[in-house]
């Protein structure tokens, strides 16, 4: 393990790897344009990649609050949902074009994040997690009953625009931009502040950091970006309804991906999302009736054997574990502070 890591470092393999990976990803749809009749890359393959890019983006956003700041959000998909519905309503009811609808969808998510975060981010640990799960479920029901606006349980149809290569490129570029943004945030003082809040919020507050402001900022940035993904998802799916958009396991999925990759690292959610997505494709195909079982087993394996995820196992010591975050929750009850 050690030897491999040294070779990896010495030859700066990660840079080459990253470069080749990006070139490969950008080149992948090209056969469709050059020789469409030979079906080298199918639309369904491009669709799979599109889904994966969206999951990578969502997991990276989740990691900003869950992994860096240590606020384990079990309702992050609410921002995805608001983005999807914002975009859907603007396009379906007001006839807006897609791009401005998507951006406004993201903004709706961000504004909602500031409002709800001002309340929930004051709660610590499990109380925050549960309150966000509640927010998520409540939002689904609100969407369901607001029939005139959202179409209720029957859902909304968006103007179909079936161009798989285009969605492939949009989601790829969004994923690259988001991961780069988060990589950059981690290098700024703001990013370090978020980790400080996770590691010791009382200590950070006592040393002059306005923790509430920093938490809310991270929260709305993540919400905005997830809102954009929601909009994209709605458009490429051409149809949204409360159950498909506010799908329960959507958040859990993001948590699992980030945990597998490595909480609090930039690469973690990317690796975790990619691994789980393809694993699921295989699992789904071969053990259809057992896939939930297999995923549950995977979660247990992560918690027990690779608590700091793939990045942690590879020796990245900025990776943290859910266990570490949770131990901190119980060391510090909200009002009583230090013992």
């Amino acid at each position: 393990m050690k030897g491999l890591k040294q070779i990896w470092r010495q030859y700066r393999l990660n840079r080459w790897f990253l470069f080749l990976l990006l070139v490969g990803l950008f080149a992948l749809p090209l056969p469709q344009f050059v020789a469409p009749e030979r079906k080298l890359v199918t639309n369904s393959l491009l669709f799979s990649f599109t889904q994966m890019f969206m999951l990578i983006t969502l997991a990276s956003n989740w990691n900003l609050t869950g992994g860096f700041t240590g606020y384990v959000d079990f309702g992050h998909a609410v921002f995805f949902g608001l983005g999807a519905y914002g975009t859907g309503i603007l396009m379906n009811k007001l006839g807006w074009p897609f791009w401005p609808a998507m951006v406004v969808g993201g903004m709706i998510s961000a504004v909602f994040a500031v409002l709800i975060g001002s309340a929930t981010l004051r709660l610590k640990g499990p109380y925050f997690s549960i309150s966000m799960l509640g927010t998520f479920v409540a939002m689904r029901e609100i969407v369901r009953v607001s029939k005139p606006l959202t179409g209720g349980g029957e859902g909304l149809t968006l103007p179909p625009y079936l161009n798989r290569p285009l969605f492939y490129y949009i989601t790829l570029i969004l994923a690259i931009l988001v991961v780069t943004l988060i990589w950059w945030i981690r290098r700024t003082e703001f990013g370090a502040t978020l980790i400080a809040i996770r590691e010791d919020e009382i200590g950070a507050e006592m040393r002059g950091i306005n923790t509430t402001l920093n938490k809310i900022t991270a929260f709305w940035i993540a919400a905005f970006l997830s809102g954009l993904v929601g909009g994209l998802w709605a458009y490429q799916n051409t149809f949204i309804d409360p159950d498909v958009v506010f799908f329960e396991s959507r958040t859990v999925e993001l948590v699992m991906m980030t945990m597998l990759g490595g909480l609090g690292t930039v690469a973690g959610p990317v690796i975790g999302a990619a691994v789980i997505y393809w694993l699921r494709d295989v699992v789904w195909a071969s053990f259809f009736q057992y896939h939930l079982l297999v995923e549950g087993a995977l979660l247990i394996i992560i918690v027990l054997f690779v608590p700091e995820g793939i990045m942690g196992a590879l020796g990245d010591d900025s990776s943290t574990s859910l266990g570490r975050i949770m131990r901190r929750w119980f060391r510090e009850s909200p009002k009583e502070g230090v013992a």
Binding site: A192, I195, A196, R198, E199, D200, I202, G203, A204, M206, G264, D317, S318, T320, V338, A339
Partner: peptide, 9 residues
Amino acid sequence: QVIRIYRKL
């Protein structure tokens, strides 16, 4: 008294 530092930084 109970040390409060940012261990992962």
